[in-house]
Design a binder for these strands. Structure first.
Lengths: 251, 251
DNA sequence: TAAGAATAACTCAAGCTGAGAATAACCCCG
DNA sequence: CGGGGTTATTCTCAGCTTGAGTTATTCTTA
């Protein structure tokens, strides 16, 4: 048994097979009423032709989060103000020895939440990038361990809706309570009681603040004009906006 | 702007300055009624003489979690059944370019929760390892960015007590409700209402299950014998056992 | 044996939740 | 232009959970 000091002293990392670190991004958005994840099609082996998460090597003087943002920006062609509205947070790291056949590669995954974004091809040189509805993930094989990463990201997103104002990141600057409810319904995957949701959203301090304005028109199929809100200053929701109990996930 | 495919194709990681990946462990336990974190004193530069988290390089064929367990085991001298009772989970990764003066080192931090453990020196060759009460952290300078890592770990621990049965990992196989309450009070840092806590713990499905037995004696200062419980099969607490609202942390 | 301490159970008011319904504004179609 | 259908917003109400305080009971220590 060797303690840390001795181990470090006798350890020259350069003498070992090289390792590399990538930043990979699980970018989520809501388009066409569906939760979608950004995927790119790999051109080169390994996993050539497979779909994978956008990502790449962290550069020598680059922070991990900066690498994640850069990779995301490159794939979506997004920059400036729209990019600033995208929320990034670290998800988790993946590094089983055999996850990449080339060499030992550690992936530090980030989660990105964005309001409805344009097709990734617009402005990007990645013709083979697309938003895929998460409901279609089961029919598509992903490269490396990216399926696991996406699943972890989805669970994190569902969970963060409960106790943070994350949902406001999926809508525009101004939004209606119904817009917000659609985010929750889409990410959680089931309908919510409109009246109760409305009451709850307005009662949680700092979640939303009214703008005083309303929508120009009612909904496309009728209904009155809705009041407009913008995101409040809360960083945590208290009391939280909890998902209905899911007995199967509890045990 | 380069897309991922071109970037990968033109990128030989070996041509870049070497990077390394370490697994560092924020190991928490409750000793003497206080929440304590395991630290080791560094023998070699950089930060020689400073206290730091146990950890070390992930070996070429080693999984990250395995590396974290190994480092923890080496520092505590723990093995076998006691080690199996320690709960490990990934915390987060840290990799700002300047966090280690030697080279680019990414740290993947793990959180370990353990019932009252022996002094780390027992069975370990690390004479300079110790459990430090987290309340004493402010008076001690830590190496690298380890203070930030510890703080993130503490916040994670406090938060996970709310919605997982994590607290049962800090007590022995069999415990009383009061034992469990002490865990919550120690980690959260304030007193809880004994009666309400009792009611709540018994009402959350799967948190604890009775053994039918009681303690041999009453408490050291009186009181009846307490019933004994063991951890139940819940993985999530529903409804959660929430901390009292902390207005200052909400905004 | 008396005092003090702790477990466990109970009470009660206040707040929050789920479910359903009422009201009113607004769209589209005929 | 009028009616039917749709949606935003507000209410009601019963049931559950929470915070705070109290009570009965069992044990330890002095």
């Amino acid at each position: 048994m060797v303690n840390e000091q001795e181990f470090l002293a006798g350890y020259d990392p350069r003498a070992y097979p090289a390792v590399a670190v990538t930043a990979d991004v699980v970018a989520l958005t809501i388009r066409d009423g569906e939760l979608q994840v950004l995927l790119i099609q790999r051109a080169a082996p390994p996993f050539a032709g497979f779909w994978a998460l956008p990502g790449g090597f962290v550069r020598p003087e680059e922070d991990i989060a900066a690498a994640a943002r850069r990779e995301f920006a490159e794939e979506t062609g997004l920059g400036g103000e729209p990019l600033r509205r995208v929320h990034f947070e670290q998800l988790a790291s993946y590094g089983t020895p055999e996850r990449d056949p080339r060499m030992r590669i550690f992936s530090i995954a980030y989660l990105a939440f964005a309001p409805d974004l344009p097709e990734p091809s617009a402005g990007s040189d990645a013709g083979d990038a697309q938003w895929l509805p998460v409901t279609a993930l089961s029919t598509r094989e992903l490269a490396f361990d990216h399926r696991k990463i996406v699943e972890d990201g989805l669970e994190r997103a569902r969970s963060k809706l409960e106790y943070t104002p994350l949902a406001t990141r999926f809508v525009g600057e101004e939004f209606t309570i119904a817009d917000l409810r659609e985010v929750y319904e889409t990410v959680w995957g089931h309908a919510l009681h409109a009246g109760n949701f409305h009451r709850k959203v307005l009662s949680v301090p700092g979640l939303v603040e009214g703008t005083g304005a309303t929508t120009e028109h009612g909904g496309p199929r009728g209904g009155p004009r809705a009041r407009l809100y913008r995101a409040g200053d809360a960083r945590l929701l208290h009391p939280a906006l909890l998902r209905p109990a899911r007995e199967e996930t509890v045990r």
